[in-house]
């Protein structure tokens, strides 16, 4: 009797761990690797602008992004003006990632001899596990109009950028904006998206309807900015080619003082060239 009892115990003691061991052998789960990946969502847009509108991307820390932007004349100027190609306004600028999630930008436009600068800060970064379903950023801009006898010399822009990369291909954004000038405040709701066409090209679109105009402004002078285009990424460059009814490339110009309209073919061809340079080794910011 005691012998049988001990055999039984022996079976239990030897047998159970053996079955357990067998389970780990076949279960393919040596690694505790079941929890979902929690990473910050990257590459919602190819660069820091959708077309004119700020995108939810911030220039990486220690990286300099040179921006060379052109807007040609309106295509309704006809063949004599080569459908606008004879005239162009230019903005040359740069963005620099100061630290993670914070970038400084500045530029000079030929239109209005405008000098502009701004800070962009990402305070929420969308994660892959959707604990943070959105990316949220603040943008603050300053602009100074050059030349003599200017009505509104200094302009300020405030934007809340709310974006989400919906899928690998589709990213969408809402950008409530205010543009402040001595002549009054303009409130607008920017919206935009990008849809990837191939691995290195995307289709982009943005629309910036003005919701509240400054008091006393006539309704006929200004139109909402609407732009469509493609991004083409080639190594260190992003080329953005587009059609837009805005000739200005700074927020006070394309949000608050946009004079072109699509219905009268006051559309213009334009492009942005973005070229990044790594200035500081990124490991210093990690």
């Amino acid at each position: 009797m005691p012998l049988i009892f001990f055999r039984f115990v022996l079976l239990l003691v030897v047998g159970i761990p053996t079955t357990l061991a067998a389970q780990t052998d076949t279960g393919m789960s040596l690694l505790d690797d079941t929890e979902p990946v929690r990473e910050k969502v990257q590459n919602a847009f190819k660069t820091s602008k959708i077309i004119n509108l700020q995108s939810m991307e911030v220039t990486d820390a220690g990286v300099m992004d040179m921006k060379i932007n052109h807007r040609f004349g309106a295509i309704n100027q006809g063949a004599y003006e080569a459908f606008g190609l004879d005239n162009a306004v230019v903005r040359i600028g740069a963005e620099y990632g100061l630290v993670r999630n914070l970038s400084l930008n500045f530029g000079r436009s030929s239109l209005d001899k405008l000098l502009d600068a701004g800070l962009k800060y990402r305070f929420m970064h969308q994660t892959t596990d959707n604990k943070k379903p959105l990316s949220m950023l603040l943008y603050g801009g300053w602009a100074r109009v050059g030349g003599q006898s200017v009505q509104s010399r200094y302009w300020y822009t405030g934007q809340l950028i709310i974006g989400r990369k919906m899928t690998d291909k589709l990213s969408v954004q809402l950008v409530p904006s205010v543009v402040i000038a001595p002549s009054g405040q303009t409130y607008a709701l920017g919206m935009g998206f990008r849809q990837k066409l191939t691995q290195r090209t995307t289709f982009n679109m943005e629309y910036i309807p003005v919701l509240i105009k400054p008091e006393g402004r006539s309704t006929n002078n200004y139109y909402n900015s609407l732009s469509v285009g493609v991004d083409i990424e080639t190594g260190g460059h992003v080329f953005q080619l587009h059609f837009t009814n805005s000739s200005g490339m700074a927020e006070p110009q394309f949000i608050a003082q946009n004079t072109g309209t699509w219905t009268k073919q006051e559309i213009r061809f334009g492009f942005n060239i973005s070229r990044v340079f790594t200035v500081v080794d990124p490991s210093r910011f990690k």
Binding site: D60, G62, V63, G236, V276, T278, D281, P282, S283, K286
Partner: peptide
């Protein structure tokens, strides 16, 4: 992690 963030 790469030396250039663009490469990454």
């Amino acid at each position: 992690i790469f030396k250039k963030t663009l490469m990454q």
